[in-house]
Amino acid sequence: MSTLIIQSPHNQGTLRKYTQSSMTMMLWVLWVYLLLPVLAPLLILAGNDIQTINLTKESLNFIQFAAVLPLLMVMMMGYWLWSKYNTLLYCYRGEDILEKVVYLHETPNYFGISGKDLASWQQLKQMTVNLTEQGDVSYVKGHKSLQGHFGEVLDIAG
């Protein structure tokens, strides 16, 4: 068995590897740049000159951020209520489903074949199935056992 994780960077060209790594680094720089409004107060606290840091169009708007908190709380409350509703629904729905028993002995009818044929096919170890254009079984040819010599050969028309 091969290893579970396939990591073969040596199968890639050197240029490709370095391009990917350096572009990822550049993207991180862009990401940090987008986070400047957060970093600016920290840099000022660290004693940096405000003129060198003043790159941001506007300072961090904490009021705007404060609006996210109630939104999150409303969302969590919504989830909680919806989850409770679902739990209650399952209590009743469970009974509905139990009433809706699907009888598997109707499976042959579903596939348009006889119960006897299906029971035989389900015993086969190896089989070849031919289907019509409509997807119906036209014939099944198979072997019940492959021990030593091929076992009992069944030719069953669908």
Binding site: L36, L55, K57
Partner: peptide
């Protein structure tokens, strides 16, 4: 220049 909208999305 980054503003609070880009900051919020990046964070």
């Amino acid at each position: 220049l980054p503003d609070s909208a880009s900051l919020l999305l990046a964070m």
